[in-house]
Amino acid sequence: MLRTRVIPALLVLDGSLVKTVNFKNPNYIGDPCNTVRIFNDLEVDELMVLDISSDRHVRGPDLDLIRQLSDECFMPLSYGGGVRSFSDAQSLFSLGIEKVVLNTSALKDPSIITSISSIYGSQAVIVSIDVKQGFWGSETVRSCNGKHRTGIDPISWAKKVVEYGAGEILLTSIAREGTWSGFDIDLLHNVSSAVEVPVIAHGGAGNLQDIGYAVSLGGASAVALGSMVVFQKRGMGVLVNFPAQSDLLNVLN
């Protein structure tokens, strides 16, 4: 049995499924509901949807789309994008979302983590930490889909969100995202070694070996896949897919 979770991470922009590179240049993939149906057929264990629409932080989650996705999805579903308050999270949980993913809102006011986790449990709150190297070489946390420099050290921020009640961390290397070049193993190792909650590696997976390295070398508890599950191969066309269980067992167990 596969012990490490491998999670398709789907990006939604204005109601459409897209894939970015370094958080830029979204490439149209297809209809998110149809994609969820395919993952149902592929018997994926868990699914994550991240809405990167620019107005999400103002308008909040797209509840109509989320209702459709939740109705279609046969597996546990996590959602992030525009979750600004406890009320937003409450609406998502009422629609069947199992975990909410917080990023910009947690940076603005970390108490939102506590307000949600104190009612729904820490396992229901994932804090997304997006990291990018600055001009002087140091890696710092970014918010607002990678656009805003916070100047915050990712390790200290990871420790803080856990103190506030986060049950998991989604750790994304912006420089690796969508590149098929492998995860930032040093970043993964440094963050996962600093906290006692599961860290989900995200950004850069290009093959099965990368998934194995994220766990064995980076200390990740789970791996989120983007390009690998929506494209045939690097540089090739769209094909929604998922690694065979036997192949994952070979690199993870």
Score class of each variant (00 low, 15 high):
R234Q: 14
F39M: 07
L10N: 01
W136N: 13
S118V: 00
F135D: 13
S128C: 12
L171G: 01
P110C: 12
T104W: 05
G178F: 01
D62A: 01
E72V: 11
D71M: 12
R234F: 08
E98S: 15
I7L: 03
S156A: 12
G218P: 05
Q209D: 15
K160Q: 12
V230D: 05
D186W: 05
P243T: 05
G226L: 08
W136H: 11
K99C: 12
I113N: 09
S246Q: 10
I129H: 14
V240I: 10
E139K: 14
S138L: 11
G134H: 07
W157Y: 14
S216G: 00
K233A: 15
G235A: 00
M236K: 14
S193N: 13
R59K: 15
G167C: 05
E177P: 01
G151L: 08
S193P: 05
S156V: 08
R59Y: 04
D41A: 06
H202D: 13
G134N: 11
L208V: 02
V127E: 03
E72Y: 04
I169Q: 07
S16W: 02
P198T: 05
S128Q: 02
L13F: 02
D186A: 10
G15S: 06
P243Q: 02
W180N: 11
Q68D: 15
V191F: 05
T140S: 11
K24I: 00
V223K: 04
G151M: 08
I97G: 01
A124T: 11
L65R: 04
I174W: 05
L63H: 07
T140Q: 12
K19V: 03
T4L: 00
Y164G: 03
N22S: 06
S221E: 04
L102D: 09
G226I: 09
K233V: 04
S118F: 02
S87Q: 13
M1E: 13
V215W: 00
G121T: 11
F231R: 15
N103P: 03
